[in-house]
Design a binder for these strands. Structure first.
Length: 628
DNA sequence: GCAAGGTC
């Protein structure tokens, strides 16, 4: 028997081949630079020892598109794109060669086994592989193809996956096809509509050959940026009042803060203040003293989104710069696969082995040795598992100062320190809180004493420091007030959107995936819907993403058009689509039902936008004039 | 010239 195995990417093919082949593997080049064909033998249950060829693709093999002869730009009305026929074609140059490679290998194979990632897109890629293989081997069908189910590359797990094949999940494949078709129809139709509309109405957009694109992920991303910008701009400060006291103990002054939240009613605050002043004059009583152990928790195992947020915050790298650097580190074998949603390590992971590789580092080797000598702790386990990849962690030690780019140096250091932190103990301290009563009002002061920094010794990206020790009070003690004031302040506006906040918002709202969030942000910048700006005092300048006039005009225009609560620039539509796709996978809805419903929804939105296109034009004119 | 999703 001959078995053909195909993985989603070369790294998986190589690793699985060497695991199953037990080291006895011969390698052949394919016509694609990164893709190799591995030959070995393996004993599959029921069929005995088989000769196996393992190869891979490079992600999706195909993409959907429209027939340009019939439905090209200018050859039909944009609204016709909602019921145009759709063509599936190979994407890019290499896919043709990859399909050819699979077809060649499948010709003499008795069985096909799919080794793509265990996620929705992975099922679809498996289906694309099957279609490629069927070109030369008509005995292969969706029903009889083997699907390996694996979530990491540990030896026994891979062997068990090889011996217990499942089937491809046709419902997951349906869900992906649904997403592809909707994104294509909505994206193309609205992009053509908007581009043509703005070209006819704005000379500069025509001259600069600007593209005004719409995408189901681009617009909600822009929506977040504009939304925040408007909240900052329209912010009206409000006055509030609170009581502030300072007590005296020995020769120490201790400011204490009011237990009530800030009051927005001056009279109410005044009454409370005068009440206490009448009752207690300048004396307060210590009514509660507590000292309790407290911890500062070490971070969770690292996901892609968290990596991007942190590298933006700590090193001011853009999400794309971070992912690019992580990919280079991955390709050099320094870190694990950088696109993952998993924030818990599989219990079988040999963490000690991974950790021990870092012991030779001049920067953190000493710390790591202490962990290996007994201070090592199990990482925390988060709630997310994408069933395809482990959290991002270093694979082997490398002298990061010799890495090619500064970004790679920063990302390698960060990934490694984060991993070491995960294997460390939480930071420990003691928190003291003292409560005083002045009249009828209570006030507190707190202090922190850090006892063991533990993980913070290595994960030095933020601080957790001891405060000045609180004076020693006794319960019931009367203390003199040095000050008791009714203070007024003003609420301050939120800050503009930082990239790390934007990533977090996209993640929470399901806009894009770990692999594409960075691209969507780049896209709204490339389209000049938004731009990056450095704001703040010279010493503490921070980078923010601010919308351009065009970006504001598009979002506000669409908001004004109003689409029955499903505005194109809000995240809800994407969220609903994601929910419906999940229902297809769960067999609670059919692909055709979801397609019909969303195509109709987009078509209605399109007709309304077309009918009210003057609003979009006016919105841009208005903003241009206002800022002129 | 257009989308979003994989990956190199």
């Amino acid at each position: 028997m001959k078995i053909l195995c195909v993985a989603e990417k070369p790294s998986i093919a190589k690793s699985v081949a060497y695991t199953l082949g037990g080291g006895k593997v011969t390698v052949r080049n394919s016509s694609v630079k990164y893709v190799k064909n591995y030959d070995f033998t393996f004993e599959f249950p029921g069929v005995g020892r088989c000769s196996v060829t393992m190869t891979s693709v490079l992600g999706h093999l195909t993409e959907m598109t429209i027939d340009n002869n019939r439905y090209g730009w200018g050859k039909c009305l944009p609204i016709n794109l909602f019921d145009s026929t759709i063509i599936v074609k190979e994407n890019g140059n290499d896919s043709k060669k990859l399909v050819q490679n699979i077809a060649n290998e499948a010709r003499l194979s008795n069985q096909l086994m799919i080794w793509t990632d265990c996620d929705r897109e992975g099922e679809h890629i498996g289906w694309e592989i099957l279609n490629a293989a069927s070109k030369t081997n008509s005995s292969l069908t969706l029903e009889n193809v083997w699907r390996a189910q694996f979530s990491h590359l540990e030896r026994s797990h891979i062997i068990s996956a090889a011996k217990n094949p499942k089937q491809l999940d046709r419902y997951a494949i349906d869900a992906v096809c649904t997403r592809m078709e909707l994104d294509l129809r909505a994206g193309f139709s609205f992009t053509r509509f908007l581009t043509d509309l703005f070209k006819t109405n704005f000379q500069e957009i025509k001259e600069e050959r600007r593209l005004i694109s719409y995408g189901g992920c681009q617009f909600p991303t822009l929506g977040f940026v504009v939304d925040r910008y408007m909240r900052v701009k329209e912010f009206v400060p409000e006055e509030f009042w609170y009581i502030s006291i300072e007590v005296k103990k020995g020769n120490r002054k201790l400011p204490m803060s009011w237990s009530r939240p800030h009051l927005f009613d001056r009279l109410a605050a005044m009454l409370l203040y005068e009440n206490s002043l009448d009752i207690a004059k300048d004396e307060a009583e210590i009514v509660h003293i507590i000292s309790k152990p407290t911890s500062n928790f070490k971070p969770l195992p690292l996901t892609t989104v968290q990596l991007q947020k942190d590298c933006s915050k700590f090193f001011k790298l853009s999400a794309k710069e971070t992912l690019d650097a992580a990919e280079k580190l991955y390709n050099q074998g320094f870190i694990s696969y950088p696109r993952t949603e998993t924030d818990r390590f599989d219990p079988k992971t040999d963490l000690k082995n991974l950790l021990s590789k870092q012991a030779e580092s001049p920067q953190w080797g000493g710390y790591v040795q202490e962990l290996l000598d007994g201070k090592m702790r199990s990482p925390r386990a988060g709630k997310h598992d994408d069933k395809a990849h482990p959290p991002i962690h270093p694979i082997c030690y490398t002298d990061f100062t010799k890495l090619k780019s500064r970004n790679e140096q920063l990302v390698y250091q960060y990934v490694t320190k984060r991993f070491i932190a995960c294997c460390s103990d939480d930071a420990k301290g003691v928190k003291s809180i003292v409560t005083a009563k002045w009249g009828l009002e209570t006030f507190t002061a707190s202090g922190l004493m850090v006892l063991e920094k533990n993980y913070l010794d290595i994960y030095d990206y933020f601080k957790w420091t001891s405060t000045k020790e609180l004076p020693e009070f006794t319960l019931g003690e009367k203390v003199k007030l040095l000050k008791a004031d009714l203070v007024t302040g003003k609420t301050s506006p939120p800050s503009y959107m930082s990239e790390s906040e934007l990533i977090a918002l996209m993640d929470i709202n399901g806009i894009g995936t770990d692999a594409t969030i960075a691209e969507h942000i780049e896209k709204i910048l490339a389209r000049e819907y938004a731009s990056k700006q450095s704001l703040g005092e010279s010493r503490s300048k921070k980078a923010y993403i601010l919308p351009t006039e065009l970006g504001c005009a598009l979002v506000e225009g669409f908001n004004q058009i109003g689409f029955d609560n499903l505005s194109l620039s809000k995240p809800f539509l994407r969220k609903q689509l994601e929910e419906s796709l999940a229902k297809i996978t769960a067999k609670q809805e059919t692909k055709n039902n979801v397609l019909d419903r969303f195509i109709e929804l987009y078509r209605q939105a399109f007709m309304l936008s077309n009918q009210k296109q003057a609003i979009l034009v006016k919105s841009y004119r208005h903003i241009q004039r206002r800022n002129a």
